[in-house]
Nucleic acid binder design. Sequence first.
RNA 1: UGCCCCGUGGUGUAAUUGGCAACACGUCUGACUCUGGAUCAGAAGAGUUCAGGUUCGAUCCCUGACGGGGCAGCCA
Length: 569
Amino acid sequence: MNKTDIKNENNASIKPGNFITEIIDEDLKTNKYGGKVHTRFPPEPNGYLHIGHAKSICLNFGLAETYGGLCNLRFDDTNPTKEEVEYVDSIIEDLRWLGFDWGDRLYFASDYFEQLFEYAVKLIKKGKAYVDSLTMEEIRGYRGTHTEPGKESPYRNRSAEENLSLFERMRAGEFKEGEHVLRAKIDMSSPNMNLRDPIMYRIRHASHHRTDNKWCIYPMYDWAHGQSDSIEGITHSICTLEFENHRPLYDWFLDELEIYHPQQIEFARLNLSYTVMSKRKLLQLVEEQIVSGWDDPRMPTISALRRRGYTPESIRLFSERVGVAKRDNMIDVALLEHSIREDLNKRAMRVMAVLKPLKVVIENYPENQTEELDAINNPEDLSMGKRRVTFSREIFIEREDFLEFPPKKFFRLSPGTEVRLRYAYIIKCEKVIKDNKTGEVLELRCTYDPATKSGSGTSDKKVKGTIHWVSAVDAIEAEVRLYDRLFLVEDPSYEKEKDFMELINPNSLEILDTCKMEKSLLNSKPGDKFQFERLGYFCVDTVDTKEGKFVFNRTVPLRDTWAKISKTS
RNA sequence: UGCCCCGUGGUGUAAUUGGCAACACGUCUGACUCUGGAUCAGAAGAGUUCAGGUUCGAUCCCUGACGGGGCAGCCA
């Protein structure tokens, strides 16, 4: 099966091809792997997954799905000093949440430690690997530079017997960390640094999250990765560009071992504007408490996006849209935002909430009277039905929806003008009550036109604006958190002069704790998503929402044409 | 200074493998609207980094320059 066949079978699900599908199509045509496509996603459990990983996940699992193959989940857990179970748990949770399934193919590189050891013995016997006893500093010195070739270690020509014995003793724990390493014997003058006798094993007297204290020698990435791919029968081992120079080494090991040989293919990792993607930097943000944790909604991690209200569908859609290629890229965060708006527009229940309330008293509306008005849950999907909202003499409107001295094209409320209250009546602003000292607007006095009740058809009065509101009699109070980009510049890592920590947006979080919401929200549960009409998409926070205290996260604001107009004029 | 990879509208990705560049996001108009949302209609914006070469014809092939990225962890 190739791209063309997929098109024929289902026109609706054609995915754009890329250089990787081209390679696979070619391999299928030449029957390189017996018609098989088998990929893997190989995270190191040393941090949380982020949106860049999502691209890789969608690519690997997506390719398997597209070609009717399989994709394994394999933890690349070869460095016990940096890896933790907390991370493997979070990674599995995120992958499941994104909607991917690896069946019973959950693997760990540490599962292969014994096999890897045997492979190493094979190379030693073949004279292709040796135990080096230089210090770390000496090894660095012997490696040479980009322009000068390296020098061979004096230990390079130990006999196979001596190497074997030393390697066994390394495993047995007879040496201290740093005393010896196992190296591949390749070429100290190779222009490719990775081929200058790369280290295969180092001694670490550390307990591993899976193998505990069974091992005190641990394989390096290059030694573990290709062989793990081989053991699992991976056909296309897809990784990011920085491993391109490692491919000759990947191939060398497999060729010398004479075992099944998958092919490594490199693509450009995802970069998102106004954020950072390196795990080291994200960890720093967490440790220095710039954010509340890996799942702080401002983070680009999967857990943060989930908490912020992103859906798995929107992230998968985004991952499709960013494409796959080899050139460095910087994806506009607007594309991510577009993806979630598009998804939520179709599915999110609409509701009214006032973030920065301004009290309005409707003077000609009877005291103690209330009425229930029909409101549509989602104009994009009428099957979602209707709900009732309470209308009363006292309501709250958004402070921003009133301007005492309105500029041109301001369609909202101002002294003497009329505006429609969504699903209710048209009101007119009669009086502005202000604080004598500060001049702050405290309250509005309005009148309503009973003939303009929503849906009654008893008035053909037209107004330019419609605003949202919440009745004061049964409004529920809630906290709302508004998020903005975490960094002030598009590419915080690009700035040469400044450290990325100096480029943090000091206003990336705004907490509003006097928000008023319609009573229907009382039934909402953590994780529920809504569109607050005219404001944006919000979700009930899963961490800080407690019995009797609602906390909402703004996932993304609605497109705001007025903001653009008012900004430019 | 060495090696490897990459250069297509503001951003990202395409171009049936050599037939004068398409799609998405963004931007800007207009229509519609009881969300200044959504939707609909439309517009602007690249001659494919540059210079040679091959060819009837080059985004695509070749050469060179320029630009960007990666590589000197006992990290992955």
